[in-house]
Structure formats: structure tokens, C-alpha cells
């Protein structure tokens, strides 16, 4: 996973999003058309719906330092497809938010970024995910290796039933990291702005902490291994507003050193913390079971919230549905 394996930028089409007249959704010639859908959108109608199959790179592509590039990423559980054809680029050292109604596949997609879906029997991934240009699902890639570089924080705080210290030391020990463990633990706790809260009770069981502290402990635990990316799946949904605010502040600080992808149900949170936002939708298929998640629109957060190109994005961010 070295940087010299980066995909040449020329292989991917660049569209500047400052060029708003050309950032109209356009239909790729090779895309399968959906019966009944208008294939192309005439210019000058910013809120006209794009075809469901529109790709993110059609809509917004102006990222020249991607940490992840997905192309036609589709995930199915068993035989039922859950998310189809997600193509997007996640920028480095920025915060990318995934929003969308429940069941649209946000978690499913974020779990492709550290191959967490490998743990679900029956989960099947198609398409590609590149991490610094390397195919994450390549045959020579060890998923355990991947997760050492790409940390994850979950919806519910999940500290181990161990001491605060041992929670943080877990990752570094597993990775066989060299150096003073005390120092590693202190630094991780400081980065998660938790050090002052817990420095006098490092040997206490982590279950004795408040929910917000537990979640920051989980962030510190992930940071202790010096990951390059932090994936956060609804990290604040179990927390009160004050704890949420602290984690958002923390994300702003962490952005200096790590790339962050966050799934959130809280639109204000996406607007507050993220640089870019991807909006997913559940596409009700012909039958009840055929609920398929798709990426509708992806772009700079302020544009997604102030000037969405897709009517469904606009309805969602303005709270009309979802």
C-alpha cells in the first residue's frame, strides 16, 4: 500500500465543481438506463431529478488527493443486493459525511472501506475500492492488514470489558508496536481529549465511564494505532448533545492528521462537521424485499445543503422526507 501505487489521476475524469454550469448531472453513455426514467437532464434545471443510476463521479469529481476511490461498488447480503453502483472519491485529511434514510446502505458502504463486511457471512462485494490506489479487495490484500491502517468507531460505544489503559493498549499490542506503552496510551488519550478526564483512573474498568467518555475512549483506542483513516458509523447517535459537541470538536482537530468518513443521521451534524457529503437513498424496487441503496449525489457539503442538484437531495436535506 505505498503511495507510488497511486492510480494516475488521468484515468479518472476530473470535473471542477466551481464550474457550476457543467456540474449538471449528465448521463454516462455506458450507463444502463432505467425504464421509465428520463435519461438526461436538460441544462438550466438545477433541481431536476437525476436518473437513479447516476454515478457520483458524474455529479462531482473534483478530488485530486483521494484516499478512497470506489467504482461501481455494490454489496449484497446473500442474494439480495443492498447497495448498487456506488462510485465516489473520498478526499484525504478531510471529513466526508454519508447521509440518507435508514437502510440506504451507508453502513454497508463504510464497512467496505476496512473490509468489515468480510465478517458477515453471505456479504458479497463487487466493484472496486481503492485505498491510495491499491485495490482493497485484491487477492494479495490481507483484511487484517487493512484494518491496522483504517480505524473504525461504531454507533454504540464498545469498550472492551477491561481497564481504560488496557482498552487503549489493545491495538498497539496486537500490532506489536514498539515504544513505551504508557506514552502511547497517554498520547492517544490526549488526542481524543480524554486524558484530563481519566488520567487518575487509568486502571479502572472502562464500563464505569459515561457514554460520551466511552465513545471518546473508542476513538482514542482507534487512534492509538496511528491509523491513516478513521471510519465513524453514527458515532454520536447514542450520545447527548454536549458529548456530541465534544466529539465534533475532536473531529475537527483530528482532520489535521487523519481522513475521516462519518455516517450520520443528523443532518445538522453533517453540515457542521463535514467537508463533503454523499447522499444515499433507498430505491424501492418492484417488490418489498427489493430495497436497494444508491448514491444520489455527492459534493462539497455547503453545495449539497444550499444548492443540491437532485430534487431528492433537496427534499431530504430540507427535511421533507427521510
Amino acid at each position: 500500500m505505498s503511495d507510488d501505487e497511486l492510480t494516475p489521476a488521468s484515468t479518472l475524469r476530473e470535473v471542477s465543481d466551481s464550474d457550476s454550469s457543467s456540474s449538471e448531472p449528465r448521463d454516462e453513455p455506458g450507463l444502463p438506463a432505467v425504464p421509465g426514467e428520463v435519461p438526461a437532464v436538460p441544462a438550466g434545471q438545477p433541481h431536476a431529478p437525476v436518473p437513479v443510476v447516476a454515478h457520483a463521479d458524474v455529479i462531482d469529481d473534483a478530488i485530486d488527493n483521494p484516499v478512497f476511490i470506489t467504482e461501481k461498488l455494490s454489496v449484497s447480503y446473500g442474494t439480495a443486493p443492498a447497495v448498487l453502483d456506488v462510485s465516489l472519491r473520498v478526499p484525504e485529511k478531510q471529513i466526508t459525511a454519508f447521509i440518507g434514510p435508514s437502510g440506504c446502505g451507508k453502513s454497508t458502504i463504510i464497512r467496505c472501506f476496512n473490509r468489515m463486511n468480510d465478517l458477515i457471512p453471505g456479504a458479497h462485494v463487487e466493484g472496486t475500492v481503492r485505498y491510495h490506489g491499491v485495490d482493497l479487495y485484491g487477492s494479495d490484500i490481507d483484511s487484517v492488514q487493512v484494518r491496522k491502517r483504517i480505524g473504525m468507531v461504531f454507533q454504540k460505544p464498545n469498550p472492551f470489558p477491561k481497564s481504560i489503559y488496557d482498552n487503549i493498549a489493545f491495538g498497539p499490542k496486537v500490532l506489536g508496536m514498539k515504544g513505551s506503552m504508557d506514552q502511547i496510551v497517554e498520547e492517544a488519550l490526549r488526542r481524543a481529549s480524554l486524558w484530563d478526564d481519566v488520567k487518575d483512573r487509568l486502571k479502572d474498568n472502562a464500563f464505569g465511564m459515561s457514554g460520551g467518555q466511552q465513545q471518546r475512549l473508542c476513538i482514542a483506542r482507534a487512534l492509538a494505532t496511528n491509523p491513516d483513516v478513521l471510519l465513524m458509523d453514527e458515532p454520536c447517535s447514542a450520545l447527548d448533545p454536549i458529548s456530541t459537541g465534544r466529539i465534533e470538536d475532536l473531529m475537527h482537530e483530528l482532520k489535521e492528521t487523519v481522513s475521516i468518513v462519518i455516517v450520520t443521521h443528523n443532518m445538522q451534524q453533517a453540515a457542521r462537521v463535514s467537508d463533503r457529503t454523499a447522499f444515499f437513498i433507498v430505491d424501492m424496487g418492484s417488490s418489498e424485499e427489493a430495497r436497494i441503496g444508491r448514491l444520489v449525489e455527492y459534493g462539497p457539503t455547503d453545495r449539497i445543503f444550499t444548492n443540491p442538484h437532485d430534487i431528492r437531495t433537496e427534499e431530504y436535506v430540507s427535511g421533507k422526507f427521510g
Partner: peptide, 10 residues
């Protein structure tokens, strides 16, 4: 808990 540990590269 398992996911937490796998997520750390265990």
C-alpha cells in the same frame, strides 16, 4: 466487542 477488536487490526 468482536467488531471493535477486528476494527483495530486484530
Amino acid at each position: 466487542l468482536r467488531e471493535g477488536a477486528y476494527g483495530l487490526g486484530a
